[in-house]
């Protein structure tokens, strides 16, 4: 099992003012799934994602990734797990603005410790698989939003992680670019990548295979998508 989440609770704040963000969440995700975590803002979906990608610790409960919980690692080991096994795509791309596409994609690799040749090979592969290789030596401000997000996806997959986290990846994009991005995610999933997508748009969420809906820190529903949308189709129209 890739993820095992059991009775997860997260409470922010100090002793006097407590703000619960997650109030007992349990589910499992196995390898190769494409899961949307859905819910309105304040539902706790970002908090859940942060805990799942080991950036944050739960107040109660367990979150196991590949049978290990956050407590089994020290900070350096956590960084290593994030580096080698997880990829991240953010709503606002988070590219380094004065660094070109190639070096942006290479960023995770400098913390991995491959040889120069291996690094370049992996970057090239990642750029080609999202179709942005022709822009390799452009800077982010010379790219469209869609191209920037493709760069960010290339960065997320450059190290061949076992899971990709995408936090509102289409939130800042027009619908056509959004479709392209979602198409890439669906293809990556077809290739075997596990993808965890955080979104509040129902239509985008339904491009995944399974939707976990949150509300007020609790799971509202957890079901497979019966009528899955394919981004590819949207593009043809």
């Amino acid at each position: 099992m890739l993820f095992e989440i059991e009775n997860l609770k997260k409470i922010y704040g100090n002793n006097s003012v407590k703000t619960p963000a997650l109030q007992g969440v349990s589910f499992k995700i196995s390898s190769g799934e494409f899961v949307s975590i859905m819910g309105p803002s304040g539902s706790g979906k970002s908090t859940l994602m942060h805990i799942m990608c080991f950036l944050d610790r739960p107040t109660y409960g367990q979150c196991k990734f590949e049978d290990k919980s956050i407590d089994d690692f020290n900070d350096d080991e956590l960084a290593r797990v994030r580096n080698k096994k997880m990829g991240f795509v953010f709503q606002s791309y988070n590219l380094l603005s004065r660094t070109n596409v190639f070096d942006n994609v290479k960023l995770p690799l400098i913390y991995t410790g491959f040889s120069k040749e291996k690094e370049n090979e992996l970057v090239e592969q990642a750029l080609k698989s999202v179709g942005i290789f022709h822009r390799a030596f452009h800077f982010p401000n010379q790219l469209s939003g869609g191209e920037q997000q493709k760069t960010a996806i290339a960065r997320a997959i450059v190290n061949h992680p076992s899971v990709i986290f995408a936090d509102e990846p289409t939130g800042n994009l027009d619908s056509k670019s959004g479709q392209q991005i979602m198409d890439i995610f669906q293809k990556l999933n077809d290739q075997g990548h596990t993808i965890i997508l955080v979104t509040h748009e129902k239509y985008t969420a339904e491009m995944a295979k399974r939707i976990i809906s949150l509300k007020d820190g609790k799971i509202l529903s957890d079901e497979l998508v019966s009528l899955r949308h394919y981004a590819k189709d949207g593009l043809i129209k």
């Binding site: 950036l55 350096d76 913390y111 991995t112």
Partner: peptide, 16 residues
């Protein structure tokens, strides 16, 4: 700040 956050997210250790 954002750059530092990003670097940490993609695997930079405190030391790095």
């Amino acid at each position: 700040t954002r750059e530092i956050g990003l670097r940490k997210a993609v695997g930079a250790r405190k030391k790095d």
